[in-house]
Amino acid sequence: MKGAGRFRHLSASWRLWAETFQALSRSPGAVIGGLLFVAIIAVSLGFPLLYPRDPLAQELLSRLIPPFWQEGGSLAYPLGTDNLGRDVLVRILYGSRVSLLVGFSAVLVASVAGIALGLISGYYGGRVDHFIMRLADVFMAYPFMLLTISVIAVLGNSIFNLILVLGLSDWVTYARTIRGSVLSIKKKEFVMAARSVGTPHRVILLRHVFPNVLSPILVLGTVRVANIIIWESGLSFLGMGVPPPMPTWGRMLAEGRVYIADAWWLVTLPGLAIMLTILSINLLGDGLRDALDPRLRNIPG
């Protein structure tokens, strides 16, 4: 690649990542998003050290206490309490773990399934390709929200089922993206060369094709984490998310809705937490897309 001076000592694929990172660090949006996201992950993992509270402990004498800056609030409950006197801040912090866990795991499930089907579809072509793509059409047409809520209703709402259902109903976009990239790559000389010396298909797919179609998947995966987190909170809001008593952002909103006239913080703060998380991921995703985009257009031939 031209102008790669600084990273000349690195191998081609490392150079790509180093350059991507460098491009990311030049975009203010990506930097803000990235820092915010790292902060959210760090807080989500490390908060029990700084704020060791029980998210389920009920203090019935301290019900519906507002956040500390409002009259009647106190620093004992920085973001107030809910209708059962539970600490809102610690519940939001626990909620972040559910959202991030479900978001990332579901995207992992979806991308593994989508990448595998997309690689097979694009590389082998023919009847296999036809079948997989028709299956993708059917999945696309399915009302996603209804599919997930009805399957969860039948299977039961464990965190495992949630990840599985959200992941498996989201494979199509990955498969289509990968398939498109594979179709253009499999005609390149380096794939032909590998073929001509008798390299098995499986090795060509994993060693030569897969690394070259990874960047669009990375951008897609980032966007999908944000989507899945929104869906998870929606399912949770409907009462079909991770089962109680685990606090989740969606359930906090659903429970707080009853007290909307008396306790604005119960319906506002968990939503702000969702928004902040999604915003950081979206900023990062936009930056990543811009950083990888010029390369997508001229994949080395």
């Binding site: 944000a226 929104i230 909103l253 319906v267 939503g271 999604i278 979206n282």
Partner: peptide, 17 residues
């Protein structure tokens, strides 16, 4: 960007509020 980052049902609740 903010519009994309808000769950629509939360936005609905905020409007009710």
């Amino acid at each position: 960007l903010f519009g994309l980052s808000m769950p629509h049902f939360w936005l609905g609740i905020m409007m009710i509020l």
